[in-house]
Lab assay of single mutants.
Amino acid sequence: QTVVIGDTTYHLNNPEAAQQIAKELAKKYGLKVVISGNTIKLK
């Protein structure tokens, strides 16, 4: 699972954790979560 935040890319072996982290950050910073395949992007 790949999480992309701005110009930073994180690789996590746990998809659920990756999605949870993405949701928390999106909520905290008012970002939009875009999931395509096994890549999660925060914009």
Rank of each mutant, 00 (worst) to 15 (best):
V4R: 10
Y10I: 13
D7W: 15
I35G: 01
I21D: 00
E24N: 11
H11Y: 14
V3D: 02
Q1T: 15
T39A: 04
K32E: 10
I5S: 03
P15C: 14
E16Y: 10
T2L: 11
Q19Y: 15
L25H: 00
N14C: 12
G6N: 06
I35R: 05
K27I: 09
V33G: 00
K27M: 10
T9F: 08
T8L: 12
Q20I: 09
T2P: 04
S36N: 11
L31I: 08
E16S: 07
A22T: 03
I35N: 03
A26G: 03
Y29P: 02
Y10N: 01
I40S: 00
I40D: 00
Q19N: 07
A26S: 06
G30H: 07
P15Q: 08
L42E: 01
N14M: 08
I5W: 13
V3H: 02
V34G: 01
Q19W: 15
I21Y: 13
I5V: 06
D7P: 08
V33M: 13
A18E: 01
D7Y: 15
I5K: 03
G6D: 04
S36E: 14
N14F: 10
V4N: 04
T39S: 06
K43A: 10
N14R: 04
H11W: 13
I5F: 10
N14Q: 06
E16P: 02
L31P: 01
K32N: 08
V3R: 02
V33K: 00
A17G: 04
V4P: 02
K27R: 12
K28L: 10
A22L: 11
A17N: 06
Y29Q: 01
V3T: 03
I40W: 04
T8D: 04
L25V: 03
Y10L: 12
K27G: 04
E24T: 12
T2V: 11
K41R: 13
V34S: 06
K23H: 11
K27W: 07
G6W: 13
K32P: 04
V4T: 11
K41N: 08
G37W: 06
N14K: 04
N13A: 13
V3K: 02
L12Q: 01
L31Q: 02
H11L: 08
K32D: 06
T9L: 07
N14V: 07
N38F: 07
T2Q: 07
K28T: 04
K28F: 10
G37I: 05
L12Y: 14
I35F: 08
L31D: 01
G6S: 05
V4H: 07
H11F: 13
P15D: 06
K23V: 09
T9W: 09
L12K: 02
K23L: 13
K43V: 15
Q20E: 09
T9Q: 06
Q20H: 09
E24A: 14
A17M: 12
E16W: 13
A17E: 13
P15A: 13
Y29V: 02
G6C: 14
I35E: 02
A17P: 01
E24Y: 15
P15S: 10
K43G: 06
